[in-house]
Design a protein around this nucleic acid. Sequence first.
DNA 1: AGAGTTTTGTTGACACCGTCTACATTGGCA
DNA 2: TGCCAATGTAGACGGTGTCAACAAAACTCT
Lengths: 204, 204
Amino acid sequence: MSEARQYHHGDLHAAILERATRVIEQEGIEALSLRGIARDLGVSHAAPNRHFRTKADLLSTLARVGWEQITEATLRAAEEVLPNDAHHRLNAMGQGFLKWALKNRSMFAAVTHPDVERHADAELRQAIDEFQQSVRDAVVACQQAGRLSNLDPAIATLYTNSVPFGLAMSLKNPLFGTDLSDRDIDELVADLIELVVPTAEPDS
Amino acid sequence: MSEARQYHHGDLHAAILERATRVIEQEGIEALSLRGIARDLGVSHAAPNRHFRTKADLLSTLARVGWEQITEATLRAAEEVLPNDAHHRLNAMGQGFLKWALKNRSMFAAVTHPDVERHADAELRQAIDEFQQSVRDAVVACQQAGRLSNLDPAIATLYTNSVPFGLAMSLKNPLFGTDLSDRDIDELVADLIELVVPTAEPDS
DNA sequence: AGAGTTTTGTTGACACCGTCTACATTGGCA
DNA sequence: TGCCAATGTAGACGGTGTCAACAAAACTCT
């Protein structure tokens, strides 16, 4: 009952997603193809169609999973930080995001893939909104605690949201040959996010 | 001698680039195809091959042009700003970048396209390096003028470089439904970049 | 338990794409 | 003027996404 090929795969849906992330990791997101995945999984070329009607659908699902992981990773980072005041929490969220992006390159690639924004379905939108909302909450808490309080929350959120995003894109792009390879990742991340959300008391 | 189809197009190379940016603008970068462009230009399907051996080659060229435009736009912004001290220059560069990205969406899409980083040729790398260097120069000048002077220049450059990048990605992505549509673009850009490179004197 | 229905996978087809090769036309240069 | 390199064409190949028709298994209901 083990290696005999069965007509029904068992859980092809999950297998496709898993294989897709592997392919992206190893060969880049441009090499992703439904037929290729089907081949790798030993299943007919049209089988994935039952689970993802279009390729954009697969990308979209990957992106949704990615955003859910982002939300989870940032919120967990926020809870674990000490001291657990508003500024340290927001700072930790930034660090959590950046570390996640550097560790999960294939998912981050899916999240930022240009094809995704066209065919985004409701679930993906909701996953994004959820994350945005959590950032917004943290920003507002930060403002109430005194820092950045003169800013429009929408702008502060956009800023806080975008900066780790841009940092992740730059760090992962080999063309931006910023030579920081000798640095400790955690320290680098901490230094960078400190520029965005300072935890140190401002000089007086 | 005007509308009669000639065997030789005249300047197919430039025509392809121009048509490509139009397609990206109107149908998205995922809809870009060499055959489609050839069709639009009334030329045989393999004609573009003479000018761009592969599709990645076309993307790469678009990206290079994009980076050249970025360098030009940021440096011009830096020269035009008043007062023309180091901080205002760096701030103006950030604003210049962001405005360029919002105005030239198709080029920005090419610059950030995932396929580009794989098959980047020497020219593209040089164009990127040139921009990075100009940012680095501006950052160092800024540090010498007193602000941010305790930072590793590599980190400061990475930060200054990445932030407008992330902001541009967020602002252009319709999924990040940051509702800022009622705002004046110039004012929004100014407010955002002020968070990155403050021109106002720090509170004392 | 067994029949009917829904889900899942297969096969084959279609149109499109990128890219290669062989050939045709042209423009420029010796 | 005649040759050659540059440019465009025609055709082919393998690859891809996606659809429709069919087959097998799983599920459901009595």
